[in-house]
Amino acid sequence: MSKLSINNLSMRFDLPNGSFVQALKDVSLEIESGELMSVLGPSGCGKTTFLNILAGFLSPTEGTVTLNGHAVTGPSAERGMVFQQGALFEWMSVRDNVSFGPRMAGRKKKDYMDNVNHLLDVVGLQDFKDKSVYELSGGMQQRVALARCLANDPDVILMDEPLGALDALTREKMQGLVLKLWKETGKTIILITHSVEEALLLGQRLLVMAPRPGRIHKEYRLPFAAAGVGKDLRVVKRDPEFGEKREEILSMIWDMEEEIMGRTEEAKA
């Protein structure tokens, strides 16, 4: 089974003036196959650095990441990535974007086309498959990005604020879609977000990170993602426990932000 192990991950950026930024310090984590984990934290807590290391775009200064027993050293098709926006290829049609991975792997068209068409159906873009991606709305573009990632059949899907640039209504629909895809495909999904509500809804596990140095502050195991599959997400949000957890995490992040502000003021003084 695909298992992602993260051992004592540290990331340190040296600055030209001799000082350094400790983006991550001693992050250790085991992620089981099929888990849906959301990562939340104030800005500057290293969550994007964390994701970039998992994707293989950065190598950590210390520690290791292993997937299925072998070390992660660079980007690979086993770890798919969904970006916030602008990562689609404008010069290709929707269908060519979705079939990009299989095509690059040199697979035969008849082997992958059924799967591509199925995914276009799942994300509801069958009628738009011959359009250019710049003709689609932001929500549709993100659905293309999801389908493109799934068409490659990765073991782990990494999402870097995939819904961050969408309007509230589209965002809610897309959250439902992410849950549905998670349930149907059984993929391991790690999702970074700014929104506490989204982290609660789309996190079987929820990781709250703290800044300076970037580290895991607290971890939750939540029932809302499992409960929300195939349901109206607003019903889930009305759950009193959901509200409690939201308040708890919000105040936690508020405290962190205030601490940062305080520290900056101290540094100034």
Partner: peptide, 12 residues
């Protein structure tokens, strides 16, 4: 992000 996306999709 386009280059990263292509590499994560297995492109050489």
């Amino acid at each position: 992000s386009k280059v990263h996306a292509a590499y994560s999709l297995g492109a050489s």
